[in-house]
Simulated scan of single mutants.
Amino acid sequence: MKLVIAADHAGFPLKEDVRAYLETKGHEVVDLGAYTGDQPDDYPDFAEKLGEAILAGVAKKGVLICGSGVGVCVAANKIPGIRAGMCHDTYSAHQGVEHDDMNVIVLGARIVGTALANELVDSFLAAKFISNEERFTRRYNKVLAIEARYQCGDGSNSKA
C-alpha cells in the first residue's frame, strides 16, 4: 500500500521508526517531513502537507505524528476530506476505520513507543470501512453533511 507520513520535530524520531517499519512490510511510504528532529518547526505545516497529499491522490491513507498527537490531529481535521483520529490503542486504530472511514492515524511520540506505534499502524492499515452496515453509512454521511455545511467556497472552514 502507498502511504504518506509526516511529523514535526517532536515526532521525527518515531516517524523515522514507523517509516522504516512500514517499508520492511512492503509499503511504499512517501515522507513529507520533518527531515530532522533538531530544528523547531510548526505541526500545522506537516498536518496540512499530509492532508493535501491525500486529497491530491498521492496516497489514500496517512500517518501523522507530533509530540502528543493532539496538535496535528486538530490541524488535519480542519481539512475537508481528512478524517484523522488519534490512536493509542489497537481497538481505536481499527475501529476508527471500520466505523468512521478514518484515513489518517495520528500518534503521539511522547505517548507511545515504537513497538506500540507499529502495532497501531498495522491495525489501522488492516481495517476496512464497514460500508455494508446501514448504521455506519448513515453516520458517515452525517459527518460528511456537517463538513459540507461548514466548508466555505473561499477555502476556509468557517460559517462566520
Rank of each mutant, 00 (worst) to 15 (best):
M1F: 09
H9D: 09
F12T: 01
E16I: 12
E16D: 12
E16S: 12
D17F: 05
Y21A: 08
T24E: 08
H27W: 08
G33N: 07
D38S: 11
D42A: 14
Y43K: 09
P44D: 14
P44Q: 12
F46G: 02
F46K: 02
K49V: 10
V58I: 12
K60A: 13
K61D: 08
V63L: 07
L64E: 06
I65N: 00
I65G: 04
I65P: 02
C66A: 07
G67C: 03
G67W: 02
S68V: 02
G69R: 10
V70R: 11
G71E: 12
V72R: 03
C73S: 15
V74Y: 08
K78D: 09
P80M: 02
P80A: 09
P80K: 05
R83N: 07
R83F: 11
R83Q: 06
H88M: 05
T90E: 13
T90Q: 06
Y91A: 13
Y91M: 14
A93G: 11
A93E: 08
Q95Y: 15
D101P: 01
M102S: 11
V106N: 05
G108K: 10
T114C: 01
T114W: 00
T114M: 00
A115V: 13
L116Y: 02
A117E: 01
N118R: 15
D122H: 05
F124Q: 04
F124I: 03
A126H: 10
K128A: 13
F129I: 03
I130V: 13
I130W: 07
S131A: 14
N132V: 10
N132M: 12
E134P: 08
R138L: 11
R139F: 05
Y140N: 14
N141V: 05
A145I: 05
R149T: 11
R149D: 15
C152S: 14
A160Q: 08
